[in-house]
């Protein structure tokens, strides 16, 4: 069938390591098929670079199905590029015009150290989860799964939140580098379910305060929602805010007491 090939001009951020200075560099990629995914276009470019003895552009990827959250870069000033609800690996070249000029830059935030080129360290997101993003249920201690009925609406909403792939695009999109959408998605997933109630208030305090050690604050721009490949709603951020305020009162250990 082969559709007519496209020519794409790519301007890519090149940076050899975390502390090295970086700069943009221009490349021409011919023979781009509209059926290629964005990462396949970069693969093609990298093959050319290697042929010309230039180091390939480093970028993270794995599943290439929009689920692992590895991929992600700024494509023409938007995390994951122009298509809504789509991770970089799921973006296809047919969404661009022939001779398009595409600029790719790594996600930027204080917490996102650049490893190399377009690859960044997003481990601060794991620190937020470690702070309380779980339900304590030691293996073997669980009662029968159908013991607690979970209303379908609750389970569905928890699932809407739980879909977050941890890509960090929300942080990258936010003018404040806030990780609110990520954190709120994690919190809502667990705070909505009956199983998550016991730790709800501790979890909220710990995750929010850990988040703030690394990331900026939400000032309700809603850029995160627009960039999120899973289209996670900012309504979950509202829920985070409410739960955090409530947790200050409900959290018995801290209420009214002066620490340490």
């Amino acid at each position: 069938m082969s559709a007519p090939k496209m020519h794409i001009k790519v301007t890519a951020w090149r940076q050899s390591g975390p502390d090295a200075p970086g700069a943009f560099k221009d490349y021409d990629v011919n023979d781009v098929s509209p059926d290629m995914s964005f990462l396949e276009m970069l693969d093609t470019l990298n093959e050319r670079l290697i042929e010309n003895n230039e180091e390939p552009i480093a970028f993270d990827h794995d599943c290439r199905e929009g689920i692992c959250g590895s991929c992600g870069m700024m494509i023409n000033g938007v995390p994951h590029g122009p298509e809504r609800g789509t991770a970089t690996c799921q973006l296809h070249m047919r969404k661009f015009n022939d001779n398009a000029h595409i600029t790719v830059e790594p996600f930027r935030a204080a917490a996102f150290t650049i490893n190399k080129d377009l690859s960044v360290d997003r481990s601060a997101l794991d620190r937020i989860v470690e702070a309380g993003g779980y339900i304590t249920a030691p293996t073997g201690s669980a009662p029968d799964a159908n013991l607690i009925p979970v209303p379908k609406a609750v389970s569905d909403t928890a699932m809407d939140a739980a879909q977050c792939i941890g890509c960090g695009a929300c942080v990258a999109a936010c003018p404040n580098s806030a990780a609110q959408l990520f954190t709120s998605a994690k919190l809502a997933h667990l705070n909505l379910l009956p199983q998550g109630q016991a730790e709800r208030w501790d979890r909220t305090i710990d995750m929010v305060e850990t988040m703030e050690m690394y990331f900026g604050s939400c000032t309700n721009f809603r850029e995160c929602e627009a960039a999120c490949p899973k289209e996670i709603s900012v309504d979950f951020i509202a829920m985070l805010n409410k739960d955090y305020v409530k947790s200050q009162l409900k959290q018995r250990r801290l209420a009214g007491q002066v620490f340490p």
């Binding site: 301007t11 023409n76 000033g77 938007v78 830059e105 404040n176 806030a178 900026g216 604050s217 929602e225």
Partner: peptide, 17 residues
């Protein structure tokens, strides 16, 4: 929030929302 992004984007941002 300034501290949260010490190095600004070097290419033009395109705001959506």
């Amino acid at each position: 929030n300034r501290k949260a992004r010490p190095v600004a984007y070097q290419s033009e941002r395109d705001y959506i929302a």
